Amino acid sequence: EADPRLIESLSQMLSMGFSDEGGWLTRLLQTKNYDIGAALDTIQY
């Protein structure tokens, strides 16, 4: 079963217009401990 923190973070990022095609966003959020800010910083640079 998916981590509730992942579901919450992923749904927030999907609502911002990101896609999780191929699961890349799920993996990114997992490596950033479900921190949306850290994930966005990684995507920006």
Rank of each mutant, 00 (worst) to 15 (best):
R5S: 07
F18T: 01
E1M: 11
M13C: 05
W24M: 05
I7R: 10
W24H: 06
D41R: 13
Q12V: 15
G23A: 04
S15R: 11
L40N: 03
M16D: 03
E21F: 08
I36L: 07
E21C: 10
I43F: 04
W24V: 06
L6R: 04
E8A: 15
D20Q: 02
I7S: 11
S11F: 13
E1F: 13
S19D: 10
N33Y: 07
E21T: 07
L29T: 02
G23Y: 06
Q44N: 15
W24D: 04
S15P: 02
S19E: 11
L40K: 04
D41N: 13
A38D: 07
L40S: 03
L10A: 00
Q44M: 14
L14R: 08
L29Q: 01
N33Q: 11
D41Q: 15
R27S: 13
A39E: 01
I36Y: 04
L28I: 09
G22T: 07
T42E: 15
T26D: 04
R5H: 03
D3K: 04
A38C: 06
F18S: 00
M16C: 05
T26M: 05
A38T: 08
A38R: 09
L25P: 01
L29K: 00
I7Y: 13
L29E: 03
W24Q: 05
I43A: 04
S11E: 14
G22N: 11
E8T: 11
A39L: 08
P4D: 12
R27E: 13
L10K: 03
D41F: 15
I7A: 11
E21V: 10
S11Q: 14
T42Q: 14
I36M: 06
L10F: 04
S9P: 05
Q12M: 14
P4A: 13
L10R: 06
Q44C: 08
N33L: 11
M16Q: 05
Q30N: 09
S19N: 15
W24S: 05
R27G: 07
L10Y: 05
L25N: 00
A39C: 08
S9T: 11
P4Y: 13
D35Y: 04
K32L: 13
T42N: 10
R27H: 15
F18C: 06
E1W: 11
E8L: 10
G17N: 03
M13P: 00
D41G: 09
I43R: 03
T26V: 06
L29Y: 01
S15F: 09
I43W: 05
T31I: 13
L40P: 00
L29V: 02
E8M: 10
G22H: 08
L40R: 05
S19K: 12
L25A: 01
E1S: 14
P4H: 12
D41P: 03
S11Y: 12
